[in-house]
């Protein structure tokens, strides 16, 4: 029964592929995102850029606020809980969230342990910077992976770095011999059977999206060409000059990510992109949270 639930949860992520998941903070924003072609929305009280600006402790959003967004749209609704905070996850499960993001964007509740996600019926997505983090999260029960990137910056450099590392390690695993694979699994502190899966299939056992710092159609196309199966856009949309137009353009860019002519057209007249801060200007490195 547990396995069947995990399969169903993995399957939902498969249905999200080729799509854009957008951060929203109000029912109105959720409706804009759905109308623009989001395949799911992430309900949260403050988008990462504002969490960064506000400082302090950042926690799971008010369930009432999340329910308001659930009632406003027909697409799947995700919400974030703190790393290791299984009680927050229980609450999100109780309100029948479609996906829980155990997220480094919020303040970690546990500096050692992640949530045992196999104990839940709702699916989890987790961030990862490399193959080791991804497979450890999957072993804990994550049914979907996203790159961590560096949330709330509008700077795509970390998402690119994480996706490149992950793809490069997958290629390395794919070409290993059996004896090398035992050692590699040990080095990455991941279960051997998951290492074998990557070796045989040359991909993660679950869907892998890009996240963190995606702000333009070109950013989205870049991540797709680097091997992402879909894209999360957080602060990039509702921190920009024309959210509707930018959101719709990013959705189309993810579908036709290899067509430069169409991307050129989509990139025109989008108004101001989020200003962003680069990695040397930020004080709080969220990607370091949860390894």
């Amino acid at each position: 029964m547990k396995n069947e639930r995990f399969e169903l949860n993995k399957n939902l992520a498969q249905m999200l592929k080729g799509g854009v998941i957008m951060d929203v903070t109000t029912p109105e924003q959720a409706k804009i995102a759905e109308a623009a072609g989001a395949c799911a929305v992430m309900a949260l009280e403050r988008i990462p850029a504002d969490i960064r600006a506000a400082g302090g402790v950042s926690r799971m959003s008010d369930p009432k606020m999340i329910k308001g967004i659930q009632n406003a749209v027909t697409i799947p609704v995700m919400a974030k809980c703190r790393i290791g905070h299984f009680a927050e996850a229980q609450i999100l499960q109780a309100i029948e969230i479609d996906y829980i993001d155990e997220s480094e964007v919020l303040s970690p509740a546990d500096d050692k342990y992640h949530i045992d996600k196999t104990a839940f019926r709702v699916p989890f997505v987790c961030g990862a910077r490399d193959l080791g983090e991804a497979l450890r999260r999957i072993n804990e029960g994550a049914a979907m992976i996203r790159t961590k990137g560096e949330p709330g910056t509008g700077d795509v450099v970390q998402a690119v770095r994480h996706m490149r590392i992950m793809q490069s390690e997958i290629r390395r695993f794919g070409s290993m011999s059996a004896d090398e694979l035992y050692e590699a699994a040990k080095e990455l502190a991941v279960p051997y059977d998951l290492a074998v899966y990557v070796h045989e299939n040359k991909k993660l056992p679950v869907v892998n999206f890009a996240a963190g710092g995606v702000a333009t159609p070109a950013d989205a196309a870049l991540m797709m060409q680097l091997g992402a199966e879909g894209v999360f856009v957080g602060s990039g949309i509702f921190k920009s000059g024309n959210p509707e137009k930018r959101a719709a353009a990013i959705v189309k860019a993810v579908t036709n990510y290899e067509d430069a002519d169409m991307l050129a057209e989509l990139s025109e007249d989008l108004g101001e992109a989020m200003v962003g801060i680069n990695e040397h200007e930020i004080e709080l490195i969220m990607e370091e949270r949860g390894k």
Binding site: G37, A248, K252
Partner: peptide, 15 residues
């Protein structure tokens, strides 16, 4: 295929 009908329907029209 499966996916979100709202997304596919919108893209069908706009493309």
């Amino acid at each position: 295929p499966g996916g979100e009908s709202t997304v596919q329907g919108k893209l069908l029209a706009e493309l």
